[in-house]
């Protein structure tokens, strides 16, 4: 039952965003990340945030669920913010009052510092939210298919794209099984009095051996069985192979392309022709 919570972020509902071609979503994510990094002003980030917000609404993934992804990097966010608040050197004045609000030894809180760290926080949150939106709305299978398809040009330089994709898809399939197995073995050893997850570092490492060894053995055994099962079904590498599922563009993909390409282009343009520069 461990597998259901911790494996994959996929949120199983049907929506416009879920139905988009995974290749598009991957490309968008990359484009979006680039745009966010290029953004130099709040307006640009605001546009990104608005688009992302719309995407969340259309995806029918609850906002709370999306924000939970941010919780994972909360420490990083706070740390970045703190560093910038205390050490940012800018002198620009944004509102009535002294440019330097507080000076204490090497620590210096300035108006510019507060504004800049707010900017960084928004940027980080946007990055995390848009990445997790990809995993919330795309099944692992679609994700590997998308990656394989996008990497196809690399076949020209003999990069084993097919094998890589197969490895990824098998890994994805076995993660829940191995998580389940880990839980089972842990339970069995706990029932035999094993004290897992307490004590000092050396005790912890030693306590993991009775779980790790059976787990590895079982993984090897499964790999062996899977190899046989693949051989028996005539697997012989990617050469003669055909593919049943072809990713295909649809009208909604077109809508998505136009919409997002516009936004990304706009945000990138704003880097060179800023409206409200920081």
């Amino acid at each position: 039952m461990l597998k259901d919570v911790s494996f994959g972020q996929y949120y199983p509902v049907k929506s416009f965003v879920h139905g988009l071609d995974p290749r598009l979503k991957i490309l968008f994510l990359i484009g979006f990340i680039v745009a966010i990094f290029l953004a130099k002003e709040f307006l640009a980030l605001g546009i990104c945030a608005a688009v992302l917000f719309a995407a969340i609404l259309f995806s029918r993934v609850p906002i709370g669920k999306v924000l939970r992804a941010v919780r994972g990097i909360l420490f990083l966010v706070l740390f970045t913010a703190a560093i910038n608040i205390f050490f940012y050197q800018g002198e620009r004045v944004y509102w009535n009052g002294p440019a330097v609000l507080l000076q204490w030894g090497i620590f210096r809180v300035t108006q510019a510092g507060i504004v800049f760290s707010a900017f960084l926080v928004v940027r980080l949150v946007l990055l995390v939210v848009c990445s997790s939106m990809l995993t919330y709305t795309t099944t692992p299978v679609a994700l590997t298919d998308g990656i394989e398809s996008l990497l196809t040009p690399l076949k020209w330089i003999r990069f084993p794209v097919h094998e890589l994709a197969l490895i990824m898809s098998i890994a994805l399939r076995f993660i829940p099984i191995l998580l389940d197995e880990t839980e089972r073995i842990m339970n069995a050893q706990k029932a035999r009095g094993a004290d897992i997850g307490s004590g000092g570092p050396i005790r912890r490492v030693r306590a993991i051996v009775p779980v790790l060894i059976p787990l590895l053995l079982s993984a090897f055994r499964r790999a062996d069985e899977l190899g046989d099962a693949m051989d028996a079904r005539c697997y012989s590498g990617g050469k003669k192979r055909t593919k049943y599922k072809k990713l295909r563009f649809s009208w909604r993909d077109l809508v998505g392309v136009l919409l997002l390409a516009g936004v990304i282009a706009g945000v990138v343009l704003m880097r060179f022709y800023p409206v409200f520069p920081l």
């Binding site: 089972r184 069995a188 050893q189 035999r192 009775p210 060894i213």
Partner: peptide, 18 residues
Amino acid sequence: LRRKVGMVFQYPENQLFA
């Protein structure tokens, strides 16, 4: 409690490690 309650799981040979 666990000292007094022995528990044998399915396929218990999968827990052997030593």
